[in-house]
């Protein structure tokens, strides 16, 4: 009897703890929606969680949940002309996933801005990420003069969020030459359609008419990256020389094309679908960058 009471006590404490923490998170995010001139908050913040995100963005929720979405706050603002600016702040589990969800939606061509960690503006829209937060501002019916204020408003939101800006360090290993600007992405699952590769960073390249990708996959340790490589090599359409994993390993992935990579400690770094000569050059630069950082 006594034990049951204590068990219930612990359960109760846990419930209270998580409840309080949830409320605290909610309150903390509530503070991320600032007041700014020309607009008034038109309603209370609406909150969504993993189990209710579908109610707000329907099928698009899957992509957010994949990147370990935790909480969304939505605040509407109205200006004097009854035009609505909607601010959505998505919290993900960590800054890598914040970047991941942001990068899965960012355009290749766009007007990029130094807001938060990085952002961009399009007609009626300004989106940016800041650490684990992905912020989406939309005001399709807001007139142009007020849309020009979006960066200023975004900066106010970023200030409220606080913390350290910056994009994931891993993306800085991709050399600039030939890289499609702002093409860096973090893919959380099934990189190149292969579950065994799990997650990784990619960047698009375009050289001499060839388009291809560079990638970085980080295993937990060297053995983990070796296992991933071994699984990948099982997909190769012909035998592969693997005596020296730090020299490029070259093989044809049945679905993705020519893969050239090297393994450095726990990392697999390489190119997919790049012409051999260009790939060798890029691999050399990738290795230099990795060893420098």
């Amino acid at each position: 009897m006594m034990r049951n009471q204590i068990f219930l006590f612990f359960i109760g404490m846990a419930w209270i703890f998580y409840g309080v923490q949830g409320a605290s998170d909610q309150n903390e995010m509530g503070g991320f929606f600032p007041e700014f001139s020309g607009f008034q908050k038109s309603d209370a913040v609406s909150w969504y969680f993993p189990e209710s995100l579908y109610e707000y963005i329907n099928g698009a929720a899957e992509n957010y949940l994949n990147y370990e979405f935790q909480q969304l706050g939505v605040q509407n603002y109205r200006n004097g002309k009854s035009q609505t600016l909607t601010v959505e702040i998505y919290r993900h589990s960590n800054s890598r996933n914040g970047f991941g969800i942001y990068s899965s939606e960012k355009p290749l061509l766009g007007e990029y801005l130094p807001v938060g960690s990085q952002g961009y503006q399009e007609e009626g829209v300004l989106n940016f990420f800041y650490g684990q937060y992905y912020v989406k501002m939309s005001g399709y019916d807001v007139d142009v003069a007020d849309q020009k204020r979006f960066p200023e408003i975004a900066n106010k939101i970023a200030e409220k969020i606080g913390g350290q800006p910056g994009i994931p360090r891993e993306t800085t290993i991709f050399p600039d030459e030939g890289k499609t600007r702002n093409s860096e992405r973090f893919i959380l699952n099934n990189l190149f359609g292969h579950p065994f590769l799990k997650s990784g960073f990619v960047a698009d390249y375009s050289f001499e008419g060839s388009k291809f990708r560079a990638f970085l996959v980080c295993g937990k340790d060297q053995a983990d990256s070796d296992r991933m490589l071994q699984s990948w090599l099982e997909m190769a359409v012909s035998p592969v020389k693997t005596e020296n994993l730090e020299a490029p390993v070259v093989f044809q992935d049945k679905y993705n094309g020519l893969v050239m990579l090297f393994r450095l400690d726990n990392r697999l770094v390489g190119t997919v679908n790049a012409p051999e000569k260009l790939a060798l050059e890029l691999l050399k630069n990738l290795k230099d960058n990795l060893q420098r950082k």
């Binding site: 899957e62 994949n66 899965s104 359609g193 679905y255 993705n256 094309g257």
Partner: peptide, 12 residues
């Protein structure tokens, strides 16, 4: 196709 980002998967 919603969550697929790999064109090779669609091709396949």
């Amino acid at each position: 196709v919603m969550n697929a980002d790999n064109p090779n998967l669609v091709k396949a």
